[in-house]
Computed example of a mutant assay.
Amino acid sequence: MSTEPAASPSEPLSAQQGAALYRLMTWLSPSFPVGAFSYSSGLEWAVEAGDVTDAASLRDWLAAMLEYGAGFCDGVFLAHAYRAVANNDERGLREIAELSVAFVASAERHLETTTQGRAFIEIVRNAWASEGLERAVTACDGALAYPVAVGLISAVHGVALAATLHAFLHAVVSNWISAGARLVPLGQTDSQRVLAALEPVVISTGERALVASLDDLGSATFRADLAGLRHETQYTRLFRS
């Protein structure tokens, strides 16, 4: 049991903590222009197929994606990319970047993660120039998946890994819910209820991803993977994935 006194609730953030929080909130805000709004990660096909029809089925679908699919795997890639940059492990970073791009299950998911990753790097490069960024990007030697880009940038800027990981998963699930709200459709209150219901899943997934090894990577969301593949030939589409 810790004997250290608890921090005062009114204690201000340090300048460094404030800058880190400011950047993290900006980078993972829905308004940050990486084009996330144009992707549904296969959810559009799931709605057309009748797998997702209301708030409850959307919650269940997204909980599975978080715990057993892309959410967890992307969290692991983010954490390992962050640590590789922090440890100046360029070879390890290159291997993580290659694996993360190869791990996606469909052409559209590949487009989704690499397009957002590239946009994320370019915007931060131009707005928040930082020492070490170019070296880390060069080490990746090719396409950057979105979670690797977020982990890389956060490490370069000294933003805490745990906070980055939880903020990333929150941003991902928020975008999924936004897509579901337009497709099902759902009202704003139901959308927020789904987000609230997924809070413990986001937290537990982040905790697992934080300590997972690359050997722990794997998914069991076969229906979601099929949805991503089927979406490629879906006749009428609002989203790019």
Rank of each mutant, 00 (worst) to 15 (best):
residue 2 S to M: 11
residue 3 T to L: 15
residue 4 E to R: 15
residue 5 P to E: 12
residue 5 P to A: 14
residue 7 A to V: 13
residue 7 A to H: 02
residue 10 S to V: 07
residue 16 Q to L: 12
residue 29 S to E: 06
residue 29 S to R: 04
residue 32 F to E: 07
residue 32 F to H: 02
residue 35 G to L: 09
residue 44 E to M: 08
residue 46 A to G: 04
residue 48 E to F: 04
residue 53 T to K: 11
residue 59 R to K: 07
residue 61 W to G: 06
residue 64 A to W: 00
residue 66 L to D: 06
residue 67 E to Q: 13
residue 67 E to C: 04
residue 69 G to M: 04
residue 72 F to A: 05
residue 72 F to R: 14
residue 75 G to Y: 07
residue 79 A to H: 05
residue 90 E to N: 07
residue 98 E to Y: 09
residue 99 L to W: 10
residue 108 E to K: 02
residue 115 T to W: 02
residue 116 Q to Y: 01
residue 117 G to Y: 09
residue 126 N to V: 00
residue 129 A to D: 07
residue 137 V to S: 04
residue 139 A to P: 08
residue 142 G to K: 06
residue 142 G to Y: 05
residue 148 V to L: 03
residue 154 S to M: 08
residue 155 A to C: 03
residue 159 V to E: 04
residue 162 A to M: 05
residue 175 N to V: 08
residue 179 A to F: 09
residue 189 T to A: 12
residue 189 T to Y: 06
residue 192 Q to V: 04
residue 192 Q to Y: 11
residue 200 P to W: 13
residue 200 P to C: 04
residue 203 I to R: 09
residue 203 I to T: 14
residue 206 G to E: 02
residue 207 E to M: 09
residue 215 D to C: 05
residue 217 L to E: 05
residue 218 G to T: 12
residue 224 A to V: 15
residue 228 G to T: 09
residue 238 L to R: 14
